[in-house]
């Protein structure tokens, strides 16, 4: 495993020593090789056939290329808790979408070994009119669980979310924190090879955040789950991650130990 640095004239990003010795023989769970993602941004958004044809006729259909990710390479090994940091709009979410398999990179490859459990963004996959009970089955199905699996883990999911008394209440009456608890609880009912945590944790209160972190920690320790954590909060990354990558404006600025990466990252604002 190499530590790479592709800084674009960034004085504070220096090549740091390998985070782990290269003879690391744990399985590679996420293997991102030279991934670039290019979006064609139309100068205006064309949602209608009429506009589209008018533009084509006038030869006004212009696209601007936008490189959301530029030659990103890193590997995450089994048992890693891997942080992804960067400012807003730097390409973190795009990277996660590629890893989750919902977005295809323009070039490069991204391989994920094993099963992925994404922590779904609040509301996605839930229907606010349905009760919590119904949503657990619906959401579980979408995450690829079988009915038997949900039946078996139902109590566990409910207990972890601490929502037994509200099971048959429509989700629209829940607070956003309660919804987040259910979402987290369902996503971590399984023992995936890779758990993707995308700022979902910041919603619940601090007690629940702590509980979530403990659950993640136990997944890491007992089930050897690999975790990718995306966050603005350097504090959370520092607390949980052992390795991190810093992506800035689509370019990889630094890869290595969390401490070093975060030190460089937080000096950005100075």
């Amino acid at each position: 495993m190499t530590t790479e640095q592709r800084g674009a004239g960034a004085p504070e990003a220096s090549v740091t020593g390998g985070a782990k010795p290269s003879q690391d023989d744990r399985d590679v769970i996420v293997d991102v090789q030279h991934v670039s993602m290019i979006f064609n941004i139309a100068s205006e958004r064309l949602n209608s056939l009429k506009e589209y044809f008018i533009k084509i006729m006038r030869h006004e259909l212009m696209f601007k290329e936008f490189k959301a990710l530029d030659d990103i390479t890193f590997q995450v090994r089994r048992g890693d808790v891997f942080g992804l940091v960067g400012t807003n709009g730097s390409g973190k979410s795009t990277m996660l979408k590629i890893i989750a398999g919902v977005l295809e990179p323009s070039s490069g490859t991204c391989r994920v070994r094993g099963t992925i459990a994404p922590l779904i963004e609040l509301g996605a996959g839930f229907d606010m009119e349905l009760t919590a009970r119904e949503n657990i089955y619906l959401n579980g199905a979408l995450l690829g669980y079988s009915r038997a699996f949900i039946d078996e883990h139902f109590d566990e999911i409910v207990d972890f979310a601490e929502l037994r008394d509200f099971l048959d209440m429509p989700l629209k009456n829940y607070s956003s924190g309660m919804v987040a608890r259910i979402a987290f609880s369902i996503a971590t009912a399984t023992k995936p090879d890779l758990l993707i945590v995308d700022e979902t944790l910041s919603v619940g209160d601090y007690l629940f955040q702590k509980k979530c972190e403990e659950r993640i920690q136990s997944l890491i320790n007992d089930a050897h789950v690999t975790v990718m954590l995306v966050s603005h909060s350097t504090e959370q990354v520092e607390r949980m991650c052992d390795r991190a990558v810093w992506i800035e404006k689509g370019k990889m600025r630094m890869l290595g130990d969390t401490d070093e990466v975060l030190r460089a990252y937080s000096s950005l604002g100075d």
Binding site: I98, G101, L103, E104, P105, S106, S107, T109, C110, R111, V112, R113, G114, T115, I116
Partner: peptide, 8 residues
């Protein structure tokens, strides 16, 4: 040009 996930 590929995203490969085993057991998708």
């Amino acid at each position: 040009m590929s995203t490969t996930t085993t057991a998708p």
